[in-house]
């Protein structure tokens, strides 16, 4: 564990807490893409199957359980509890166009052909693009509430901090995983446009609004 990895994990944790609190406090999931949340639930489910095979640490187990449970809780809030507030007309991204290619790619480029390994690789590929339905929704409506922007900023920062963690691990431990690194870079690049708007608008107290 190094400082980049820890702050990355904490940013990820913060993002999820912000999202759950926003939905719970406002009793509304307006502006939140249910499609992205479905993808995150698939990502965590396929990646954390090792919960039943390998014990790393209490921290590791607790975080994995939290990410899994919170992703299902978020789906419950969006699709059941606050269904009436879900903005499905603007959440029209076809997730099969992300899930299918991620799976095919995981079958083609993976470290080993075992069930756990292929599913881990699939989850890494899928995570890198899982935010696209949410970004698509923001671009479609042309705006995002500030709280949604904070959520996106924390969620995007998490993988960017992981990249620093991977550089650190490569330098200090001569340890690296090319699949995670390339996917992590793709994931971070997808947020760049948003990061720019966040710094130039949201941090200056303005609402995130795209030019018409």
């Amino acid at each position: 564990m190094n400082i980049f990895r820890l702050t990355g994990d904490l940013a990820h944790l913060l993002a999820i807490i912000i999202l759950l609190l926003k939905i719970w406090k406002t009793r509304s999931c307006a502006g939140i893409s249910g499609k992205s949340q479905i993808l995150f639930a698939i990502v965590y489910t396929t990646r954390y199957l090792d919960l039943v095979t390998t014990f790393v640490s209490a921290y590791n187990t607790l975080m994995k359980i939290f990410f899994l449970a919170s992703s299902y809780a978020t789906m419950y809030l969006i699709y059941i509890k606050f269904k009436a507030t879900y903005d499905h007309n603007h959440d029209t991204f076809r997730i099969e166009f992300l899930v299918a290619p991620a799976f095919v790619l995981a079958m083609l480029i993976t470290h080993a052909y075992t069930l756990l390994e292929v599913l881990w690789t699939f989850s890494i590929y899928l995570e890198s693009v899982a935010i696209l339905p949410q970004l698509f929704m923001v671009s479609k409506t042309g705006e995002a509430e500030s709280i949604t922007s904070h959520y996106l900023f924390a969620l995007g920062s998490y993988r960017a901090l992981y990249i620093l963690n991977w550089i650190y691990r490569y330098v200090m431990e001569n340890n690296y995983d090319l699949i995670a690194i390339v996917a992590g870079i793709v994931q971070t690049v997808l947020y760049c446009d948003f990061f720019y708007l966040y710094v130039t608008k949201v941090l200056k107290g303005k609402k995130l609004q795209l030019p018409a």
Partner: peptide
Amino acid sequence: EDWGYKHDEL
């Protein structure tokens, strides 16, 4: 194959 690394990171 470095499985430890894979299981450790989130």
